[in-house]
Design a protein around this nucleic acid. Structure first.
Length: 258
DNA sequence: ATGGCTGAGCTACTCAGA
């Protein structure tokens, strides 16, 4: 089974790129973040024509997450946490891998910049609530997949110049500790689990030639609960979509499990 | 290297992203 996570930075502006990518990568499930559109304007038909059903939790202009699936996804839930600002940042559902019932959690964690503002507090509060809910869910189901745009640089190796981000909402120790706290509930960061010292990124800014200079950061992640480690086949950051015309600033991360 | 580039909503310009 192939599950892919991708912050597309507008599903409507990106629909051609997304469609081309699906045809090539053929995921069973595609988890989208930053769809940036209300549910009534979601391009359902484009995904249906490719054989996918869309489970969406949209919002006008900002945020928005979706589970695009070729296989059955049950018990879709948009209230995994209570979001203080009612932003559309999390959608969950259940899938089956052989006999295992897996809770799939698609997230778009707040950016949190600038620090020392209400935006940063919102990110900290969001993470606090999320960790509590994950802990509770883990006590009910030991098969969890958390994927999405975390807006967290886990370690120094995960950004082109750590000095620039050590006091930023993405790289600050206080935030990285939250990521570690999540991992310590019983998860592995699949990319880092497979590649101990590899330096690859999932995001590059649009400006200042960041892509060309490879000034990027690894902020999109797959976390698998320890019970699912034996099911991991491959994890891959696919840089091709970032090199296309009219790209998202993020590129997909692809997981294969069996 | 805390500014530049992109998208949404709207149709000039602000807000947000990371």
């Amino acid at each position: 089974m192939k599950i892919i996570s991708w912050n597309v930075n507008s599903v409507r502006a990106r629909i051609k790129n997304i469609s081309d990518y699906i045809k090539q990568s053929k995921p069973d499930i595609l988890l989208l973040q930053e769809t940036k559109t209300q549910d009534i304007n979601f391009p359902y038909e484009e995904f249906i024509s490719l054989g996918y059903k869309s489970h969406v939790y949209g919002q006008k202009s900002y945020n928005g997450v979706a589970i695009i699936a070729k296989i059955k996804v049950e018990n879709i839930n948009k209230n995994f946490i209570k979001d203080n600002l009612n932003q559309s940042r999390i959608i969950t559902g259940e899938i089956y891998l052989k006999k295992k019932k897996i809770e799939l959690i698609n997230i778009y964690i707040p950016n949190g910049n600038p620090i020392e503002t209400e935006k940063y507090d919102y990110k900290k509060d969001w993470l606090k609530k999320f960790i509590i809910s994950v802990k509770k869910k883990l006590s009910e189901n030991s098969n969890l997949i958390i994927a999405g745009d975390f807006n967290i640089i886990p370690e120094e190796i995960d950004v082109y110049d750590f000095k620039r981000y050590e006091n930023d909402a993405l790289g600050r120790l206080e935030i990285r500790k939250k990521f570690r706290e999540l991992i310590n509930l019983g998860f592995h960061d699949v990319y880092r689990f497979k590649y101990k010292h590899k330096q690859e990124y999932t995001f590059w800014d649009y400006f200042a030639g960041s892509w060309q200079k490879n000034y990027g950061m690894r902020i999109d992640h797959f976390l698998l609960s320890n019970n699912l480690l034996e099911n991991i086949l491959t994890i891959n950051i696919n840089k091709k979509p970032r090199s296309k015309t009219k790209p998202s600033d993020h590129t997909p991360i692809e997981l294969e499990i069996n």
